[in-house]
Computed example of a mutant assay.
Amino acid sequence: MDEYFNLLMDSVETPGDVNFRIEWKEGRGRCLVATTTIQPGQIIFREKCVVKGPLHNTSPVCLNCLSKVSGEYKCSDCYLPLCKPECKGDHQTFECNLFQLAKNKIDISDFTPACPLYQCITPLRCLLTRDNWPEKYIKIKGQEAHREKAEVGEHWSICQTNIVDYLIKSWKLDFSRNEINHVIGCLEVNSFEINLVKGGRGRGVFPLLALLSHSCVSNVKYVYEDTEDGGWMTCAATVLIREGEELLDHYISNLESTIRRRQFLRHTLLI
């Protein structure tokens, strides 16, 4: 656990000495615990995004800034839509080279409904770190996926067709079904929705932040900052946190109804 914690800290900044650690608690698993008193409003850590990409269900978006696209501009290399020709960034870093290999170029003509192609993009970016950025892949792989409770239902079947089978059978990628499904589970359980400067919405991987346990009465808050170097999430205390107390997040807004929160938490905590 200490080795994994040290690896995660490679992508983390703190304003002073590290004032938290990873602990294992029965019934909760890994969590973050304060090692000293943390004052209200105090920044605890800033974590750099490991990988970001589109939401699972989305209409076509720019694969760099994740803003909506109309099809007016397309990548000059793989022909997938971008918001403008020079907006490549993450797309060029990750999947562009792969999609250039398509014998028949992917043609998206309807830009209003959700497009199944985009379901595979964020999992694919996570998988591509295995051979290109192994330290990132270890951070992703080390997260909980809770697959034993996720492998049921319509959503699971859709993921097998639109992500697993698509990457293995259509693209002949050298990833096992187990590897792909683990990444899918990690994203379902641990990713955070992010808002980018240009108005795009997506999800990002922040493995340290994902260790926060849930409480309807949380004691921290986090804010995403979209930056040119990949984006950062800042975690700060909202109340006094004493030594030995957990750092607690709330996975859904308290403004939602009790029924809605129970349904969401049952799905999120058990998949």
Results as ranks from 00 to 15, higher is better:
P40L: 01
I140M: 10
F192V: 06
W156K: 03
L248R: 02
G202P: 06
L101Q: 15
Q39I: 05
T161V: 14
Q100S: 09
N178C: 10
L270R: 14
H91N: 07
E188M: 10
W232Q: 02
L240T: 15
P40V: 02
I43M: 10
N254T: 11
Q92V: 03
A34Q: 09
K139L: 11
G71V: 02
S218C: 08
G185F: 05
I158E: 14
L128R: 08
E256F: 15
E188N: 10
Q42Y: 01
E148Y: 05
E228S: 14
H56S: 08
D17I: 07
K103N: 15
I252R: 05
I252F: 05
N104R: 12
V183K: 08
A145K: 07
G185V: 08
C120S: 15
F20R: 11
A210H: 04
N97H: 10
A236W: 02
G200L: 03
I106P: 03
T234C: 09
L63R: 11
E86H: 12
T122S: 12
N190E: 06
K52A: 11
Q119R: 15
G41S: 04
T37E: 14
V152H: 13
V189I: 14
D107P: 00
T268A: 15
L212Y: 00
D165T: 11
S253W: 01
V239A: 10
E148L: 03
V18K: 15
K141T: 00
R46A: 10
P81C: 06
G53N: 07
Y166T: 10
K169C: 11
T37A: 09
F94H: 07
